[in-house]
Design a protein around this nucleic acid. Structure first.
Length: 155
DNA sequence: CGTCTTTGACCTGCGC
DNA sequence: GCGCAGGTCAAAGACG
């Protein structure tokens, strides 16, 4: 993933709508339509790698400070062009809520990591402007490996 | 039978 | 203090 650093860019080439979403969803926004639209498996791996990079520190805080935007907790948001609402990112999620929000005609879905003791949350909604895009927001850091990596690391 | 989704109710923070 | 909007809870039902 040599292109990750450019991939993790909070500065959009497209103004307007994306700025709105960025500030509304909060803290970080990753956008790379070409990569995400190609292959779901690649997309989920890309998501994981990006999240790990962000959670490992460095880029996130500097980017956020650069944008004069303060963080209460680590939240990563990105859009994905997909028919499916929930992409397989290697973790097991349990849905705990669904809400219509004023800013969008599409419902927002709330998920929590199913692993006991892991407090990571995930928020999923379709873009108001183009419902072929899914906006996914992660909050928190997993205290375990993805399920699809457990068999590799623990066997 | 265990796990998950659904969904209305409840809680909380914020602006006025 | 009040009302609104977003986030969470939890009971009930569906499903494998």
């Amino acid at each position: 993933m040599a292109s990750n650093s450019s991939f993790l860019s909070p500065n959009f080439s497209e103004p307007g709508d994306f700025d709105d979403i960025y500030f509304e969803l909060g803290d970080f926004f990753i956008s790379d339509e070409a990569e995400f639209s190609e292959d779901q498996q690649v997309a989920s791996q890309y998501q994981q790698n990006s999240l790990f990079r962000v959670n490992d520190g460095g880029n996130l805080s500097s980017c956020v400070q650069k944008n004069n935007h303060r963080l209460k907790s680590t939240r990563v948001s990105f859009k994905t062009k997909s028919d499916r609402d929930v992409l397989d990112d290697g973790y097991k999620w349990r849905k705990y809520g669904k809400k219509m929000v004023k800013s969008s005609s599409n419902p927002r879905n709330y998920y929590r990591c199913s692993i006991e003791g892991c407090n990571v949350k995930k928020r999923i909604e379709r873009m108001e402007e183009d419902s072929s895009y899914v906006i996914t927001s992660y909050e928190g850091t997993h205290n375990h490996h993805p399920l699809n990596q457990l068999s590799c690391t623990e066997m």
